[in-house]
Design a protein around this nucleic acid. Structure first.
Lengths: 219, 219
DNA sequence: GGATGTGAAGTATTTCACAGCC
DNA sequence: GGCTGTGAAATACTTCACATCC
């Protein structure tokens, strides 16, 4: 049956760890593209990311057969296919909730747009902030969330509000149909099945490393 | 032999996933402390973090027996013990390398200090930046790295330099004795065994979520 | 000859389930 | 009665190893 065709596996059949590695592969492939390299083996790709070649081949096999035996993978082809699989060839409208110091930094961070993420709306509760112009966006009241999120087909939100409001804000976002959340607040919000959340949490990251330093003499 | 005493397991015997969960437990325990709650069960703790009670008990069992059957865990005691295990009762001196827009945001982020991480030195290569005062630190030339890192017992570094310099900077840091790195550059640097690295990478985080949204009609 | 794709084998991690204790 | 601590069972994930194909 299916031969050289890419599979369209049920999303639930693919382990989530595999999905989290795909963007990394895309990033390396992108660099190889820029360097004009046309073919890459799982061996070479793995060396870039400290991942075994077998793992890369297995990961890719969830989605199809992209390589040529004896040769490797076409950088361009694999890159394009992985971007397709991840949905990175679409534009994604993103809302930012919380326009404090951190929210403003996020709004002016230039790294999201080249990857297809467009920050199209910013919200805050603070009346002093609502109405302000930040970059090319006007900060809106959180009361307008529902209208804007459905009106502009926003399915991703970045949350940068104080911890005590985070759960409430995320609940509201989910009610409004948001299905993916990037949370910058130092807390682990609860989300029901079917909603994805990733926490950006530098303090937690540091705290999980000190364990391995803890036998050092002095810091 | 060992009975109610906390074990001191070989660091290598504890799965790394377990270690990454401990700081989350600490954070919840900290909140419970503030709320004046004195005892907590693995059930309750798990509910806060969407983790099964069995997992929490198993995780803790790598380090000792902290609970009381029929009752649960003393919030204060478990909190203190976990902080000890993670080395969070020490002060940690941290260097920041790269004082561009992002580096400055990190240097002025108030969230590290309360958790025992002290940003004690900032480095950059750019001559226009070296010598500048940022917060209460003077930006130093990267040439002074070795001297300062060993002189001030710095074993943790935060890296926020452009991608093309990241690997080189990290190699230098490791040469100077740094053993834990928090990397904000959008790349996956290579580090040898015995060095810990965590990447803060919001774009990768977003890209691993779009996979699950990709069957939506329109974005 | 060299590299993929993949069942099978091997590890790692999570969950079960229950004896033991408060 | 309720909850911990933990071997054993179940599940998830990674690596092996090789048939297959370019």
């Amino acid at each position: 049956m299916v031969s050289n065709q890419a599979r369209q596996p049920d999303r639930a059949d693919v382990p989530e760890v595999v999905v989290t590695r795909l963007p990394q592969y895309v990033r390396v492939l992108n660099r190889l593209l820029e360097e004009g390299i046309e073919v890459v083996s799982s061996q070479q790709l793995g060396a870039q990311l400290q991942v075994t070649p077998a793992q890369i081949r297995k990961d890719l096999s969830y989605f199809g057969r992209f390589g040529k035996q004896g040769r490797g993978y076409s950088v361009r082809h694999l890159h394009d296919r992985l971007r397709d699989i991840l949905g990175l060839n679409s534009y994604w409208n993103v809302a930012v909730v919380g326009v404090g110091r951190l929210g403003r930094a996020i709004l002016s961070y230039p790294g999201f747009t080249p990857d297809g993420f467009h920050l199209v709306a910013a919200f805050d509760t603070n009346e002093d902030v609502v109405g302000l112009q930040v970059g090319d966006l006007t900060v809106r009241s959180i009361d307008e969330l529902e209208e804007v999120v459905s009106g502009q087909n926003i399915s991703i939100a970045i949350v940068a509000v104080p911890v005590r409001f985070t759960q409430e804000v995320i609940d509201t976002l989910i009610d409004c149909g948001v299905r993916a959340i990037l949370n910058y607040a130092p807390t682990s919000p609860q989300v029901h099945d079917g909603v994805r959340i990733r926490n950006i949490d530098p303090v937690i990251a540091l705290q999980s490393m000190t364990y391995y330093l803890a036998d050092s003499p002095e810091h």
